[in-house]
């Protein structure tokens, strides 16, 4: 699956590990919450970076104390209409200070990429055969925003303030 990270297509070094699959020796893996809870000791002491995958009914609140163990958190969109992960992403970034990779996985659509990015996602798993160039262009659909959110784009209110100050 094509992966976009920080605005460009990159190779994916991570292995999404199924709950029944054997832990490989030398690859960083992304595990489910259940597997993390059962195999914490092994996974922590493996000497490899660790990723966590959360379903949309698993709030990151459940792992708030464990965040230091993860270099990557994958938030799942089971259907594009399930928007819980937008809130989870913001909470991870803004409240819990998570600074690792925040990856959108599942039913990720081109026309939602920008919303995801604004909420703090920096990586996106695209469907097989997605035209990556067109998807990247969708990140440029808008140049102005009303809300201050997780990204660093200045909202309209602060642009207006700058104009007022400049006019004085």
């Amino acid at each position: 699956m094509p992966l976009i990270k920080n605005g460009q297509q990159v190779a994916d070094p991570w292995l999404a590990l199924g709950d029944e699959e054997t832990l490989p020796e030398d690859v960083p893996v992304i595990v489910s919450l259940e597997r993390w809870q059962q195999e914490k000791d092994v996974l922590q002491t493996r000497g490899m970076e660790l990723g966590l995958r959360l379903r949309s009914d698993q709030s990151p609140q459940q792992v708030a104390e464990d965040l230091q163990f993860f270099s990557l958190i994958a938030l799942e969109f089971p259907k594009f209409t399930d928007g819980r992960a937008y809130s989870y992403a913001r909470l991870l970034r803004e409240r819990h200070g998570f600074s690792g990779e925040l990856r959108a996985v599942g039913n990720v659509l081109r026309d939602q990429l920008l919303f995801m990015q604004r909420c703090g996602f920096d990586a996106f798993e695209l469907p097989e055969n997605a035209p990556v160039e067109a998807w990247l262009r969708a990140l440029e659909d808008f140049s102005v925003w009303y809300q201050p959110v997780t990204d660093n784009r200045a909202p309209v209110s602060s642009l207006r303030r700058r104009l007022r100050v400049a006019a004085q």
Partner: peptide, 13 residues
């Protein structure tokens, strides 16, 4: 109106 327009967190409630 402005705050809710294209609010990235609340477009798939």
């Amino acid at each position: 109106r402005q705050w809710s327009t294209l609010h990235p967190e609340f477009s798939f409630l």
